[in-house]
Nucleic acid binder design. Sequence first.
DNA 1: GATGAAAAGTTCAGGTTGTCAAATGTTCAG
DNA 2: CTGAACATTTGACAACCTGAACTTTTCATC
Lengths: 165, 165
Amino acid sequence: MAEEQAPTVDPITLEVVDLMARLVGLFHREYEEAAAARSLTGAQAKVLALLRRGPMPMRHIAQTLSCEPSNITGIVDRLEGRGFVTRESDPQDRRVKLVVATDAGRSASSELRESLNFAREPLAALEGDERAQLRDLLRRMLDSTDSGTSPGATGSTGGSAAKTG
Amino acid sequence: MAEEQAPTVDPITLEVVDLMARLVGLFHREYEEAAAARSLTGAQAKVLALLRRGPMPMRHIAQTLSCEPSNITGIVDRLEGRGFVTRESDPQDRRVKLVVATDAGRSASSELRESLNFAREPLAALEGDERAQLRDLLRRMLDSTDSGTSPGATGSTGGSAAKTG
DNA sequence: GATGAAAAGTTCAGGTTGTCAAATGTTCAG
DNA sequence: CTGAACATTTGACAACCTGAACTTTTCATC
């Protein structure tokens, strides 16, 4: 579809991208740090965060994180070794292993999320209504993408992967 | 006891943090993908982006990226092996090695930055004035931090005094 | 000027993340 | 039942990242 795009991006967009890059870097560091404080790695924390919505097949985790399923195997192995998750067979389809967060896993993830003092650093510079403004803008940006993770455990996938390239 | 439980954070802040996490994930994937398309890793691309501002000591790179200096050694090794950077001794202080981007390094970094179609995906959902709104909010958030240098910044129009109210 | 603390960078060992190709076990169509 | 397709795992390998030990250079102090 419509492969044409303006050869030059407007300056505001370019600046927003740069600002976003800085913010992403900041957030990423905070996240890794908060995870490390609980002897978790960033990847482990991400998987755990995903599981707060409910059990999820390995394959779904890999898709959401945009990595190979074989990678998830190792991460879940270590998570399981520490008692943060368990693997359960999906009775509907025995090929599938559902990864389930344990109580320890759930509370670790919640603690981590709430400990993100990212909210108190850069976000503190904004007034209440400005924060709402920011929320609305971010919402609209993200709603336009399909990045939402479906909480449904064994959701039937539409599976129409449009690959660009 | 009544621990005076600070209302954790207001719900809007918490939601903004969650949205930010999704945005960070999205941006991160885009960045890794764009880097991989040029046979660079994310870490290498970050270092290269840092060097667009000029030569930089290893130490400074490590500080900016919040990692150990010994880590930078390996990344710069690989970057140097591919001809994207060189190491030069600082005449002022011979302990210091200045990492300098070569022409190839500079252009690879520029190409990468411009190829980030992140701007065209989620950002396309916003109108022009909304983008400006977002830019102002992000600016204020980042000005409040001591984040200093960061990969992606261009040092173009440096006007930071744009206060909208 | 010599001495020792401190800093910048490197090396080495070890763990984690990530990819890819080749397995295993399960489901489904014919 | 047979074979294709799928989910997961295993193994080999590269890159990232940390921590401790080491070399070279600077700087304060004597």
